[in-house]
Simulated scan of single mutants.
Amino acid sequence: MRLIFLGPPGAGKGTQAARLVEKHGIPQLSTGDMLRAAVAAGTPVGLKAKAVMDAGGLVSDDIVIGIVADRIEEADAQKGFILDGFPRTVAQAEALDHMLASKGMQLDMVLELEVDQSILVDRIIKRAADAKAAGQPVRKDDDPEVFKQRLEAYNRDTAVVAPYYRNRGQLVGIDGMKPIDNVSAQIDSALDAVAAAG
């Protein structure tokens, strides 16, 4: 089962991906984690990434795709994987398709958690206020201004990835505003439908 999770920050991708990891025994792959692991392991593509990062540059799509390509060859990803936070652009989506095709693989499904962004912002403001009231530090991601910037970046750069997969018939929209268990149930039934068709 090879999946991609799309959706704006705060939509619940991490929560739902963790449930799928537990249920299906496949890894959730975050490009940030993979990048750090490749750099730490000193793999050829990791060394390239390190050189770019040390110079203060942004790691190119080619390097990121190379890291994903290496990672999905590992034993724990043989049954499948969940990509979270990647691809972020149509160019990355196209490069991912080519890379998977070169390995004789394809994506089973792209899940988009659809949420009302104004409610998301309200949720974050409430979470930050609750943390402050409880005398706890506010997570950097929960700073409403930081969160709004992340949403703007998502809408500017990443929201275009969903139509790319929709046009290819791979996108399944999930109502991310429902309670967590309902969201999980929607995802499970979408995956069951693909398994039955396959």
Rank of each mutant, 00 (worst) to 15 (best):
K140V: 14
L171A: 11
A159F: 01
Y154F: 15
D143F: 05
E145T: 14
R139C: 10
A159V: 14
V161Y: 04
V160L: 00
A153T: 15
R139F: 06
A159I: 11
R150L: 06
A159D: 09
R150T: 11
N167C: 01
Y154N: 10
N167E: 15
V160H: 05
P144T: 09
V172I: 15
A162P: 04
P163Q: 07
A153I: 13
G169D: 02
R168A: 09
L151D: 04
D157Q: 14
D157W: 00
V146Y: 00
R150M: 08
D142S: 10
Q149D: 02
R150E: 05
P163D: 06
V172G: 00
A153P: 02
A162W: 05
Y164K: 03
A162D: 06
A153N: 13
V146K: 05
V161R: 02
E145K: 14
V161L: 07
D143I: 10
E145M: 05
V172C: 07
D141R: 07
Q149Y: 04
P144Y: 09
Q149A: 15
R150A: 11
L151W: 04
F147N: 04
T158R: 00
A162H: 04
P144C: 13
K148P: 04
A159Q: 12
R168H: 12
F147W: 01
P163S: 06
E152Y: 10
E152G: 04
K148M: 09
L171C: 11
D157S: 13
A153Y: 03
